[in-house]
Amino acid sequence: MGRLGLRKKALVSQVVSGFIMLLLSIATIYPFWYCLVYSFSSASEAAKTIVVLWPAGFTLDNYLTVFRIPEIYTSVLVSIYRTLGGMVYSVLITGLAAYALSHYEMPGNRAISLFLIIPMYISGGLLPYYVLINKLGLFNNLLVYILPHGFWAFNMLLMRTYFDTIPAALPESARLDGASELTIFFKIIFPLAIPSFAVIAMFNGVWQWNSWFDGLLFMTKPSLRTLQNVLQAFLTRNEADMVSLMQGRIKPVTISAETIRMTILIVTVMPIIFIYPFFQKYFIRGVMIGAVKA
């Protein structure tokens, strides 16, 4: 017994853990997989058999139809615009603020930090915000997706924690060489803090891509809405509406409301899934940094 028993026990626990993780991974992936195969299925076949693992009556008609809906194109463009624009805008504003506030000796640092952090706890709420956006003339204005979302207190704290790990001697010596603060920020701090910038950029990009409420609230013109809004509309539209919407483009045998819905859903989720592997090594590190401090 003794040693061998212990080793056996350890092996059993490894196998059990692995098995649980495998089941969990399957449970995580399967719903997406189901939607994916459904989007490649022909409607009539899918109704006859049970779609489980593979498309029933493989077809590309759903995608061909979806890519002929004009509102898909405009909404994809709007979503890309808000994702990239919002990302750059907020990373810049939040990053600059975090860098400034990482100088703890700066007079007023505490007061400014407090001013910027208080809205994490207190807010005017939905209605005052709605009225403000209206008064600012941001209804049906593409700037509404970006302008309000420049500063994220939590991201600022995360970045500042990261900046604290950069040896003070580096910006110091650059300063002695006559570099301006802007040069120091872009030439020294930014390259050294790329992991934290990447994390913030990714969180922001994902948040922007997934946002839908502002499009719903502030945009009355369908052409200004995002892909999430279009997906939402298609998910809640009834069968008859959808058929009339796709009049002339629909082949009743292969396409149904269900297959179209699943296809738009996949189009909406795909960018996240594609970008995900490239970013995941950053976000774990970034979140760990935040976690240790928080």
């Binding site: 939040t94 600059l96 860098y99 400014i112 001013f115 910027l116 809205p119 302008l147 500063f151």
Partner: peptide, 12 residues
Amino acid sequence: LYLFLVPAIIVV
């Protein structure tokens, strides 16, 4: 550095 804080302060 105060200038760096201006955009964040305005947005907030």
